[in-house]
Amino acid sequence: MARTLRRMADEIVERFSGTEDLILVGIQRRGVQLAERIAGYITEREGAIVALGALDITLYRDDLQTIGPRPVVGKTDLPLSLDHRTVVIVDDVLYTGRTVRAAMDELADFGRPARIALAVLVDRGGRELPIHADIVGKRIQAPSELRVDVLIREVDGEDGVVTVPREGEG
């Protein structure tokens, strides 16, 4: 995984020509740690500190009535103004695109970035919205019966990508 993240860090710097005005915003929960690690690699490479933020999209989901609330809402933490900056949303898995849509809705309530991009560790296909990732660590074609989970050592104790059958999810 380290190699993939390092490559993603490279791509981000190249694509947005440097680190100035760049802010990486991880989506709770695992996107936050992935964003931190990518920022670490960028700092190694460029010697510059990259701005970081965290976004909890629970309250922006469009499916509260069908899936119900998560019992605990995570923290949204966007330390700087977003206006005129390049925001790179970082998440672990890109699937239907609904999470990303909610994240963009929430970002819009915080300011008007010059540009919003999307970086994901895994793109598993299966989009329900016209959303695509700008930077992708790894592409998998997973059928809808399967769930693709990213494991990271900060949360799960180890890094990895696993595919598990869905059980009774809505």
Partner: peptide, 24 residues
């Protein structure tokens, strides 16, 4: 505890410029 744990992060919404989320 669950209610208290949920309320913690919600406090931050009142600090935002747009003090509103679409949850309900």
């Amino acid at each position: 505890r669950l209610i208290l744990d949920t309320a913690g992060p919600l406090k931050e919404i009142s600090e935002r410029t747009i003090k509103k989320v679409p949850a309900l």
